[in-house]
Amino acid sequence: MNWFFLRLDALKDSLKRLLSRPIVTISNIVGLGISIAIPAGLFLLVASADNLSRDISESTQMNVFLDLGVNDEQVNKIKQRLSLNYVKEVKLIDRDDALKSLRENNEIAVVLDNIDNNPLPHTLVVTAKEGKLVELEALGREAKTWEGVDQIAFDSDWARRLQSFIDLGKVVALCFGALFAVGIIANTYNLIRLQVLNRREEIEVAKLVGATNSFIRRPFLYFGALQGLFGGLLAVVIIEIGSRYSVSTLNELFSQAGITFQRLTVQELGVLIIISALLGIIGAWFATNRLIAIYNK
């Protein structure tokens, strides 16, 4: 019973203090919400790109670019040589078709208008059966020496490059997250330190009549937790609203590239709120740690 009442009192006390200065409280919570939403949103973007690049790096496709001067017979011959038993499909993209589809893109069309001859080669898109990437790469090396073959390009090549960019992005997002986390802790620390100083007299008297350190500390910890909780909730709202409006637009924009942007799952949103509350508690813990010991008389 005691256990419950002690905590209920502390909770009421913290709530009362949050509500007693609404402007300060609101601006703190908004700051918290934004500080959490920014790295979380950043991470979401990076994670979306990450999924794409994983898909590609597992893709078993290569493009075989032929010499400009090859004739249809040569093309067919190369196509046949490529059609090994582990190859699922060899598709020809005719250089005339390639140019036509390029011309449909207005911006590039301007450039192309100034060119008389089609600069594009025939391309053979070779898709291997699943898991046959090693064989496909070997085939690519061999095909490069064939007559009529100009260049070989693997999707997995640029996927690897993309991946290293994404890894960098992840590190940046993590650094942002860590930085904002430290910022949140420092902010809560300052705020609660001030509160402890303001309530110095009360703390002293409470200790004189038998308050334990945890009794003194509890309302401050709850204050930090509540503030963090509300900040986390606001961050969730920001992220949800942000992704509701931007995910479909982004998906349209990047549909060609095959990127689908995700939304955070309910669990991830929950974790975000918990982390936010924890950061508040950590700030409050540091703020109360030394001061309460000092008032220990």
Binding site: E201, E202, E204, V205, K207, L208, V209, G210, A211, T212, N213, F215
Partner: peptide, 19 residues
């Protein structure tokens, strides 16, 4: 703290809380 709860203390400077 638990020891102090067994005493009643009337402080010379009262130590009342005016908030």
């Amino acid at each position: 703290p638990f020891l102090r709860r067994n005493f009643g203390f009337v402080f010379q400077d009262l130590k009342l809380l005016f908030d």
